Amino acid sequence: MVLPQQIVIVDDERSVRNGLSNLLHSEGYTTNQFESGEELMRDIMALTGTALLIVDVRLKGMSGFELYAILKKHSILLPVIFISAEQDDSVQNYAHSLGAVTFLRKPIDVDILLDIIRDELSQGKAY
């Protein structure tokens, strides 16, 4: 039996977390949701078995970029999709410079998101 792949969602907007979680569940993924980077760091074991992160850039407290830098510093090298309502191209460029799978602007095109996730997770990378 193959277990579903887990995706961790970090966004301070409950509606975004729930919407993404429902979408991903309908596609056969499991999810774990966090309201902030600090909340995720308090439950770091939640990343065990995680295949991918979806992280909002603008969070209350530490930013999504800061969270990802801390994870990398601790050798937690998961693929990440950054999301944001931010329209500044420099934010997108910075996300890519960190090694993000991609950067998607809100509102998120769910078909594009699912295509990116399927493509990334089908590559058989071990994290």
Rank of each mutant, 00 (worst) to 15 (best):
A95L: 07
F34P: 10
F65I: 10
T30G: 03
K72L: 14
P107E: 10
L24I: 08
I116D: 08
R105H: 04
K60E: 14
L77M: 13
I70S: 12
M41K: 11
S36L: 09
E38D: 11
R58N: 15
G99A: 00
H25V: 01
L23N: 10
V80E: 03
N32H: 08
I54K: 06
T31F: 06
L47A: 11
K60N: 15
A46E: 13
L20I: 06
A100L: 04
T31K: 06
I112T: 15
S90H: 06
S21A: 15
V91M: 00
L113V: 14
L121M: 10
L78Y: 09
D109M: 09
V57H: 03
H25D: 03
R105I: 00
V91N: 00
T50Y: 02
S122N: 15
L121P: 10
L53V: 06
M41H: 01
I116C: 07
G19Y: 04
L113Y: 12
V101I: 15
D109V: 14
L40R: 07
G64E: 01
D111V: 05
S97H: 05
I44A: 07
L23Y: 06
E39P: 03
Y68S: 06
S63M: 03
L53M: 12
R42S: 14
V101S: 10
K60V: 10
N93Q: 13
L98D: 08
I81L: 10
L78A: 11
E120M: 11
S21T: 10
P107S: 12
R105N: 10
S97F: 02
H74C: 05
S84K: 00
V57K: 03
S75D: 15
L104C: 05
E120P: 01
Q33D: 13
G64C: 01
I108D: 05
L20P: 09
G37T: 09
I70Y: 06
D43Y: 07
Q87I: 02
E120L: 02
D111P: 00
V101L: 13
N22T: 11
D119Q: 12
E39L: 12
V101T: 15
G19P: 06
I116E: 13
E39M: 14
F82N: 02
M41P: 00
F103E: 01
E35T: 12
V91T: 15
N22Y: 05
G49L: 03
I54L: 12
Y94K: 12
T30I: 09
L104H: 04
I81M: 04
L98Y: 07
T30V: 09
V57Q: 04
G99T: 01
M41A: 05
L47F: 05
G99Y: 00
E39G: 08
R118N: 14
G64S: 02
G19S: 15
I44R: 11
L20M: 14
E120N: 07
F82I: 02
R42A: 11
F65A: 09
S36P: 13
S63Y: 02
L24R: 07
T31H: 07
M41R: 09
L113M: 14
M45T: 14
L24Y: 05
V55R: 00
